[in-house]
Amino acid sequence: MSCHKVSLTVNGAKYAENAEARMTLVDFLRDVLDLTGTHVGCEHGVCGACSVIFDGKPIRSCLIYAVMADGHDVITVEGLEEDDGSLSPLQDAFWENHAMQCGYCTPGMLIATHQLLQENPSPSESEIRDAIGGNLCRCTGYQQIVEAVQMAAKKIKDNCV
């Protein structure tokens, strides 16, 4: 068995733990670091439930081994709240618009759209749909998710002005 030291930053905190080479990042986050907010839906890269932000970009954490994340920076859904612990405008808009039902895809959706808003503060509907194009939701039909992102974008903009 090949075991490796994995040192990485998750949601601003530093961790150093051992992991077998074959352990994916999502299993590492969930089983070793106990960060169970990131979900597993397919383990073969299609559903997006496992999305995390990796060095500033959303990726699928089931498609990268934990050892490959050594020395890197990860943000999970648990890291999306504001510094004071309050909900981010995006989280709040997801709540306000009921952008979920079972909540299983929600962490992935938040990760994907969080990054979208960082890069594109006023996305069009089709840009939003594109950003979540790799995240399957079986409950919502996506509409209230799109509405939530639109509301969050507006709120963020209004707050800046």
Partner: peptide, 9 residues
């Protein structure tokens, strides 16, 4: 090619 998240890796 895939989508944003697969292209990021």
């Amino acid at each position: 090619v895939g989508h944003t998240q697969t292209r990021n890796r």
